[in-house]
């Protein structure tokens, strides 16, 4: 039985697409057949982040409207086995996503895939609601910043009231917190909310902490999911998050700034 994972946040620009690409790639590397679906109709970007923008022929909306088959629209990743991308339509609007249509496509994907990752658009409109409606698991991507935390809490409310599992009174959607763009040095200086601050407020289990990292921009520049950059802190942190998602217990890393030398501490330099 396929597991449907939604990567959501409410707020834009917190790292949903980066996370979808990284987690999808990580699951495929672990041997699971995985598809990542872009739900951001009109503003697709997953294709760019995963480096397959020039191979898009048909899209998610074409499949829903039965203008193309799933096999025609699915793009097989060139780097990673077991990994597929279903791009969003760039020309239609969000109303092209109907609950019935999305449900049929997800059912068909569930026959052959182990994991279906739904990359949600920002906001709480139709696209975001469709992305989370069918989810079994939610990865709530949050930055340690007031507006992002507040929006994440709002999204948690929607998961608990408007998802299929909530409507059918099934077991609730499994919620995970993924804290991204974390800067331990600023946390130590009292300038940024800490992991435990955000955990206190949102009260959901922590899947991982991704440090603010130059590797993320470099990865998106080249269209390579950052998890493939094994040498980078962000890549390793995403790797840990994937292993935790698969049930492994790993200690959280990258929570503390590198120790400063005596003179640096004494003089307060960076």
């Amino acid at each position: 039985m396929a597991k449907i994972i939604v990567v959501t946040s409410g707020k834009g620009g917190v790292g949903k697409t980066t996370t979808s690409a990284a987690i999808g790639t990580g699951l495929a590397l672990s041997g699971f057949k995985t598809v990542v679906i872009d739900f951001d109709v009109g503003l697709r970007n997953l294709d760019l982040i995963m480096g397959c923008e020039r191979r898009v022929v048909y899209d998610f909306v074409n499949v829903i409207k039965q203008e193309a088959t799933l096999n025609q629209a699915l793009i097989k990743d060139k780097r990673t086995d077991n990994l597929f991308i279903l791009p969003a339509s760039q020309t239609r609007d969000k109303d092209a996503l109907t609950q019935e249509g999305v449900g049929i496509v997800l059912d068909e994907l569930a026959e052959t895939f182990d994991y279906i990752i739904c990359d949600s658009p920002a906001g709480i409109e139709k696209g975001a609601q469709m992305a989370l409606y069918f989810a079994d698991v939610a990865i709530v991507t949050t930055n340690p910043e007031v507006s992002s935390v507040r929006d994440s809490d709002r999204i948690l409310g929607i998961l608990q009231s408007k998802s299929r599992r909530a409507e059918k009174a099934d077991e609730p959607v499994q919620e995970h917190l993924l804290l991204t763009r974390y800067n331990p040095a600023r946390v130590d200086a009292g300038e940024m909310l800490s992991v435990s601050d955000v955990e206190d407020i949102l009260a959901i289990p922590l899947l991982g902490v991704i440090p603010e990292s130059e590797a993320v921009l470099k990865a998106s520049n080249s269209g390579t999911p950052v998890i493939l950059d094994n040498a980078s802190d962000a890549g390793q942190a995403y790797d840990d998050a994937v292993q935790r998602l698969l049930g492994k217990e790993l200690e959280h890393r990258f929570l503390h700034a590198p120790k400063k030398g005596f003179f640096q501490r004494f003089l307060g330099g960076k």
Binding site: V146, V149, R150, R154, G190, L193, S194, D197
Partner: peptide, 22 residues
């Protein structure tokens, strides 16, 4: 208080309020 402490306090108040309304 540090600005992070201020952020946490403000968030706790607004989130509690919005959860109540929800």
């Amino acid at each position: 208080p540090t600005s992070a402490e201020l952020a946490k306090e403000r968030l706790q108040i607004i989130v509690a309020h919005e959860r109540g309304a929800r």
